[in-house]
Design a protein around this nucleic acid. Structure first.
Length: 301
DNA sequence: AATAGGCGCAACCGCGAAGGC
DNA sequence: CGCCTTCGCGGTTGCGCCTAT
């Protein structure tokens, strides 16, 4: 049977919006709002568009106070920092950047920021020989990353080998430098090695960089749910940015059973000094390097 | 000047979540 | 409680523009 289509595809226009359609939608929205039903809106507004399309157009383009154009350094840092913390939760990231849309941020990340993190040039075409070099470099990087992130994550979120050489720098220093990074201005909060009883490891000093969704999906469910989403969504703490280090609780690496590539990165640091880092419950040796890559990538921000 | 191909952005698609009945 | 509808999100695609050759 399948899912019912959200609209009559045959009678619906697709593709770029014309100025007339924009005007029509804008005028309707200013007069009536959505009326709580995007699906019915195009008909009421006299538009031959899918409701979803109208919604997208409004949210990403027509809505008042939309900011277009270049992202500031501060915005860059916020995006990088949040991405490192919560991953591709663009709507949440957008909520931290007034006037920016999730689509905008997503595009910006995919086209510019990610490349910057990878250490690739973001400028336009390079001379042919340079492009070949770039390809070689990319392949090299991919090989390296597949060592660290054997799953698909490596392909999706590779980190630069041309980042500053962080080899030999204690992980704790890297973490501290991330935490001390000027990203965290404007009232954002980093909870780091604090007294959150977030999960169930024995020594109470783990450090996690993870995804809110996962914390609510069984990993840390029940009484010790970290409540990540509530930090990000919930009222008073909306502005908070999390890099959570469980205090009394801590996490056992073995409890982090998710595949790194399969879903989202979770990093647990089982000791105060962060001598070992565990990603996805794999051995500390490789994951130490992984963390260096992440830290290195964030350094680029 | 023509063209190939990369880049960036707008828009689409499909899925899961949320909420109403 | 389960079904259905709608919303919202994240990933992906398509296309126009721009640059190098």
């Amino acid at each position: 049977m399948g899912r019912a289509p959200c609209c009559d595809k045959a009678n619906v226009k697709k593709g770029p919006w014309s100025p007339e359609e924009d005007k029509q939608l804008k005028e309707y929205m200013e007069k009536h709002g959505t009326g709580g039903n995007w699906i019915a809106l195009p008909q009421k507004a006299g538009l031959r568009r899918c409701g979803k399309s109208c919604r997208l157009r409004w949210l990403n383009y027509l809505r008042p106070n939309i900011k277009h154009g270049d992202f500031s350094d501060e915005e860059d840092r916020i995006i990088c920092s949040l991405f490192a913390n919560i991953g591709s939760r663009w709507s949440i990231i957008a909520a931290q950047l007034p006037g920016r849309t999730d689509n905008d941020i997503k595009n910006y990340w995919n086209t510019k920021l990610k490349k910057r993190l990878m250490g690739l040039p973001t400028s336009h075409r390079k001379p042919h020989h340079q492009q070949q070099k770039k390809h070689q470099l990319q392949e090299q990087q991919q090989q390296q990353q597949q060592q660290f992130f054997p799953s698909s994550f490596a392909a999706n979120a590779p980190f630069s080998s041309s980042a500053p050489d962080l080899e030999g720098i204690p992980i704790s220093h890297l973490l501290n430098s991330l935490v001390a990074h000027p990203t965290h201005q404007s009232g954002n909060l980093i909870v780091f090695g604090g007294d959150h009883h977030s999960c169930s490891s024995s020594d109470g000093s783990s450090i996690q960089i993870g995804y809110g969704r996962d914390f609510n999906h069984g990993l840390y469910n029940g009484r010790e749910n970290m409540g990540f989403e509530s930090h990000l969504y919930g009222g008073l703490e909306t502005e908070k940015l999390l890099l959570v280090g469980g205090g009394g609780g801590g996490c056992e690496a073995s409890s982090i059973g998710y595949s790194f590539g399969e879903v989202k990165p979770t990093i647990a640091c089982p000791t105060d000094a962060c001598h070992g880092l565990y990603l996805d419950g794999r051995s500390g040796a490789a994951t130490d390097t992984s963390f260096r890559n992440i830290a290195s990538a964030m350094y680029h921000c």
